[in-house]
């Protein structure tokens, strides 16, 4: 039984990072009908931003918080670790938003009125460009991630046979992911920007007739989606303490599958689909077939396209001429 709960915890933590990536996919798809293949690479860049920030400024950030909270340098407290992690995540989010801005501006906007297949090919090109120039710049071998939470002990419940281990990092990842999602939900449903985004995803022409600066809203959507991917990158880097330039492609595609599972274009659906996928993967690797784990997301994708193409929460939209 405790095994079961262990998988649930692992799955929720994994699902949280999928959800952050899936949100970017689903937002961009909702607004441009484009599968932004480069999104997984933005997530990779986020992880590397976090890595280099920690490597070069990590000690200073910790020192700063130690001073600010007036604790001794030898006492690495939980608060300092959490604050440092949040700082790194914010830095990474800002960097990724910038990357998202430039990708949209330089690669996607010039193609706004060309056939969709051209846009798709460009997206694939951008994705591969990041992967392989990443190998040139960062080197192709995996690099270890500094562990901010190394001094914190895991919470254990139960006795030897029924051991349940909760890593504080997993809790941190889960809580941060949920917080970011709630912020996003607020932005989409309760702000002017969010209303504009929903309008643009409904119809570009109509919303520009209503005076909404369509291009600016699309850029903003890209930036928000990219910043969430950046946060996910840092958190995955901390959880699986290795990062490499090709790390983004597979989780990126899986997150897209999760977005389709929940109903592409639907923000709540993306989160739901991601948690389902995270849990399913955790159970699959826990109960028997870990080697098949990577194929699971795509099998789910094909099945959902067969059974209910609009996804769990998606609404079927008929195409108008």
């Amino acid at each position: 039984m405790s095994e079961f709960f262990q998988y649930v915890i692992n799955g929720l933590s994994q699902g949280g990072t999928y959800a952050l990536v899936a949100l970017g996919y689903t937002m961009v798809f909702g607004i441009l009908q484009l599968i932004n293949f480069a999104h997984g690479e933005v997530y990779m860049l986020g992880a590397f931003t976090g890595l280099y920030t920690l490597r070069f400024f990590g000690a200073r950030i910790v020192e700063f918080y130690n001073l600010a909270l007036s604790v001794g340098a030898d006492q690495a407290s939980t608060t300092v670790a959490i604050l440092t992690a949040i700082t790194v995540i914010v830095i990474s989010m800002i960097t990724c938003a910038t990357v998202g801005y430039f990708v949209e501006r330089l690669a996607y906007r010039p193609l706004r009125n060309s056939p969709r297949i051209n846009l798709l090919i460009t997206a694939v090109g951008v994705s591969l460009f990041f992967q392989y120039s990443g190998q040139l710049i960062f080197g192709s071998s995996p690099q270890p991630y500094p562990d901010l939470f190394e001094n914190l002990e895991s919470w254990t419940f139960g006795s030897d046979e029924n051991l349940l281990v909760i890593n504080p990092l997993q809790v941190f990842v889960f809580v941060t992911a949920i917080t970011l999602m709630l912020i996003l939900r607020h932005v989409i449903f309760n702000t002017r920007l969010g209303r504009a985004m929903r309008a643009v995803s409904f119809s570009h022409e109509l919303s520009s007739l209503m005076g909404i600066p369509t291009n600016r809203i699309i850029t903003a959507t890209f930036m928000i989606g990219s910043s969430l991917a950046g946060a996910a990158g840092v958190m995955v880097g901390m959880t699986y303490p290795k990062v490499e330039p090709l790390m983004g492609s597979l989780p990126g595609l899986k997150a897209f599958c999760a977005a389709v599972l929940g109903g592409i274009g639907n923000v709540t659906g993306a989160v739901l689909g991601s948690f389902i996928l995270g849990l399913a993967e955790a159970f699959l690797s826990g109960y028997g077939a870990p080697t098949y784990k990577d194929a699971l997301a795509f099998t789910i994708l094909i099945l959902i396209l067969l059974v209910k193409p609009s996804g769990l929460l998606g609404v079927h939209r008929t195409e108008k001429v």
Partner: peptide, 9 residues
Amino acid sequence: SLVLITMML
């Protein structure tokens, strides 16, 4: 990938 992107543009 660069060829592909420039080609599309």
